[in-house]
Simulated scan of single mutants.
Amino acid sequence: MRLSAPVTGGPCWTELGTTDLESAKRFYTRLFGWRPETDQRQEAGGYTVAHLGDAPVAALTPLYQESQPVAWNVSFAVTDSDAALRAVRTAGGQPLLGSMDVFDVGRFAVAADPTGAVFQLWQAGTFAGAGVFNVPGSLGWVELLTRAPREAVSFYTTVFGWTVDPSLRSPQWAVDGAAFGGMVAMDDKFPHEVPAHWLPYFAVDDVDAAAATATTVGGTVLMEPVSHPDGPRIAVLRDPQGAMFGVYRAADEK
């Protein structure tokens, strides 16, 4: 990701919904060096913000509904969440949760694109999103995995004004000329039951070391570390509760 701060249309935050908040705190603290702080207000529902130093980088939360999967969720910044939901519907997507105020920090909504991938919309109040990007332990890339890439391109370029670089082997999303993510066409190698989804990647100093650490603290390596022909060294991991995420070598990103 070449974004250094939240911008309208770009990814601004990522949240983990998990069945075991305390276990998740321990796992990601060991893996990324995060400092988690749980909001003690009852109405906050256990919402926990992870920090690197003083900078917020991600959130960890209990599951709020029985139907909610254990997963990382990606939020995209918008200036008006209600208008963004209308744009989602017009472009063929589906609003899943109407806009809601979160204290004074902002307003959010949840939607699915026409291919089934779920994402969040964030209209900033006092909180704009992650305090840092692309440094070890922080969000560095977001990837859409879908079985209908053409439909996805049409949807996201319409709703967010993204552009796609056609010159690369793997499509990359950009906003205002800054690349921040990519897209993978899901083929027969992906189990049929795996839905389209957004996958966050976190920057690390050493991908191989991060994969090894993940396994020692209860995680799983789903994709062994590999150096991508058009990009950095990456791996895909799964935490002890089943949430998938990626890591990439920060030094490879220019």
Rank of each mutant, 00 (worst) to 15 (best):
M1N: 12
S4Q: 12
P6G: 07
W13A: 07
T14C: 13
E15W: 01
E15M: 07
L16K: 07
T19P: 00
A24Q: 12
T29V: 00
F32L: 04
G33Y: 09
P36K: 00
T38N: 00
Q40S: 11
R41T: 02
G45F: 01
G46K: 00
Y47K: 01
A55V: 04
A58N: 05
A59W: 01
A59G: 05
L60F: 06
P62A: 09
P62H: 11
L63C: 13
Q65H: 13
F76T: 01
F76S: 00
V78E: 06
V78A: 10
V78F: 08
T79A: 07
D82E: 03
A84C: 12
A87H: 02
R89C: 00
T90Q: 15
G92L: 03
M100H: 04
D101H: 06
D101A: 13
D101R: 05
D104Y: 01
D104M: 03
R107L: 14
A111K: 05
A112R: 14
D113T: 01
F119W: 13
W122H: 15
G125Y: 02
G129Y: 04
A130F: 08
V132I: 14
P136M: 14
L144G: 10
R147S: 09
A148E: 12
P149C: 01
P149L: 03
E151I: 08
A152Y: 03
S154V: 11
Y156N: 00
T158W: 05
V159I: 08
F160H: 09
F160V: 11
L168M: 12
S170W: 06
V175F: 02
G177D: 14
A178V: 01
A179M: 13
M183F: 11
A185R: 06
A185K: 06
D188H: 09
D188N: 15
P191V: 14
P191H: 12
H192E: 14
H192P: 06
H192Q: 15
V194A: 02
A196W: 11
P200G: 09
A209D: 13
A210Q: 12
A214Y: 04
T216W: 09
G218H: 07
G218W: 07
T220Y: 09
L222S: 01
L222Q: 04
L222W: 02
V226T: 10
H228D: 05
H228S: 06
P229F: 07
P232R: 05
R233W: 09
D239E: 15
D239Q: 07
P240R: 15
A243S: 10
F245N: 08
V247L: 09
